[in-house]
């Protein structure tokens, strides 16, 4: 009874929340825009170094957001790895070997790697870029893990740490270099903007894929006992 009362109270509160949100959306939609962001963007596109507006916003005009985002991802990856139950993240016993999956992935893995590369390359002038490529790369890694292809690089060690931190480090170095060089924080020199964006996008792709893969791989599995837990029960 109390349970039902509680749920209906929460339902009413959520309905009021939706009504308030919808009313404010309706009110905002009625007001004219103070200034047109797309117009501002298209006027400044020539300074960005890339042709695709979304990539230009992500890696040039609002690159501070992207820098903080990859920082958040690295922290999430480190937190995930520290929660891992296994000492080695790539344990042969944790693989689920399935012959059909194995046969399929001999076709899929190279195809997805090519797709990730294409998405990264396409980001300059059409939809695509580091985030999509990183997601596809991470999906490839997940597929490889489920199918039982050994992945040495996911073991804790130099390669994993390098992969996790590479994107953030390179991005931060570029930002600091431009700050030390006299410009604003994260303001690329216009002549090098294209090169810098391509470099940053490539390392971002790698790091995003690595973080997502590490978070997937490090999910604790019950039958992997570790000594401190086993003693406490």
């Amino acid at each position: 009874m109390i349970q039902a009362l509680r749920i209906s109270a929460i339902a009413i509160a959520c309905l009021m929340f939706v009504a308030g949100l919808a009313a404010s959306i309706w009110a905002i939609a009625g007001n004219p825009l103070p200034e047109s962001l797309p117009q501002l963007l298209s006027e400044n596109m020539s300074r960005s170094g890339v042709e695709h507006p979304v990539t230009a916003v992500l890696l040039n005009f609002r690159s501070y957001d992207t820098l903080l985002e990859i920082g958040v991802l690295v922290i999430a990856g480190i937190a995930g790895i520290s929660m891992a139950k296994t000492t080695s993240l790539e344990d042969p016993e944790l693989r689920t070997s399935d012959s059909l999956l194995y046969a399929l992935q001999r076709w899929f893995v190279p195809l997805m790697l090519v797709l990730a590369g294409y998405l990264l390359w396409a980001g300059a002038d059409r939809p695509g870029g580091a985030f999509q490529a990183g997601a596809v790369l991470a999906a490839t890694g997940v597929l490889m893990r489920l199918g039982g292809i050994p992945m040495e690089f996911i073991r804790p060690g130099l390669l994993l740490r390098l992969g996790l931190a590479l994107g953030f480090t390179v991005f931060l170095l570029v930002a600091l270099a431009s700050a030390i060089g006299g410009d604003a924080f994260l303001a690329y020199p216009p002549a090098m903007a294209k090169t810098l964006i391509v470099v940053i996008e490539s390392v971002l792709t790698l790091s995003i894929a690595m973080v997502l893969l590490a978070l997937f791989v490090s999910a604790p599995v019950n039958d992997a006992e570790d000594p401190e837990e086993g003693g406490s029960s």
Binding site: P127, G128, Q132, A135, V136, A138, A139, V142, L212
Partner: peptide
């Protein structure tokens, strides 16, 4: 966003 959502939302 559609590309990212297809890879992330549906896949990962």
């Amino acid at each position: 966003i559609a590309l990212a959502e297809a890879a992330i939302g549906a896949g990962l």
